[in-house]
Computed example of a mutant assay.
Amino acid sequence: MRFVQLGLAVALAAGCVAGSSAPAGADEGVLHQVTYSVFAEQPFRAADIYYRDTEPANWSDYSHDPYVFSPKVEADVGPTQKWVLNVQLANPDEWAMVAATSGLSKTPPNFHCVLAVDGVVVAENSGPKGALCSLRHW
């Protein structure tokens, strides 16, 4: 009788596990809210801003063509004009990144970038002609 009860318990447990399968995409982990911000001390038209909004499946995909995963936008920025973008990333420690540059401009706009993950600022940087904010050392 004990073997029958044990067999029923095992079958019931297996049925519960099979019936509670995780939804598609659950293996990817928790998505984090990543906020990129860029502004400049001097008004600047058409700053080149590169950011990461998509994570590659692996490093080789990224290294084969990094610009697929790092789109560029041109934005007007200044002391009162910020460029802000919110994205969701599973691994911001590896992939979150924003960079701004003035290219060949003769007037340095003094860029500032800020990177926040889940509402907490985790990286800030500034530079006369460009700034890079990332958790990973590139």
Rank of each mutant, 00 (worst) to 15 (best):
V10D: 07
A11D: 14
L12N: 13
G15M: 14
A18C: 12
S21A: 15
S21E: 15
A22N: 09
D27H: 13
G29F: 09
G29I: 08
H32M: 07
T35G: 05
Y36C: 06
F39D: 07
F39W: 14
A40H: 09
A40V: 06
Q42N: 08
Q42T: 02
I49G: 00
R52G: 01
R52A: 03
R52M: 02
D53C: 06
S60R: 12
Y62N: 03
S63T: 08
H64N: 09
D65H: 09
P66L: 01
Y67Q: 00
Y67P: 00
V68H: 04
F69P: 00
S70C: 10
K72N: 03
K72A: 05
K72S: 05
V77C: 00
G78W: 03
G78V: 03
P79Q: 10
Q81H: 15
K82H: 14
L89K: 01
E94K: 10
W95K: 01
M97S: 01
M97K: 02
A99K: 07
A100G: 08
S102W: 02
G103N: 09
S105Q: 01
F111V: 08
H112L: 12
C113R: 00
V114T: 14
V114R: 13
V114Q: 10
V114F: 06
L115V: 02
A116M: 01
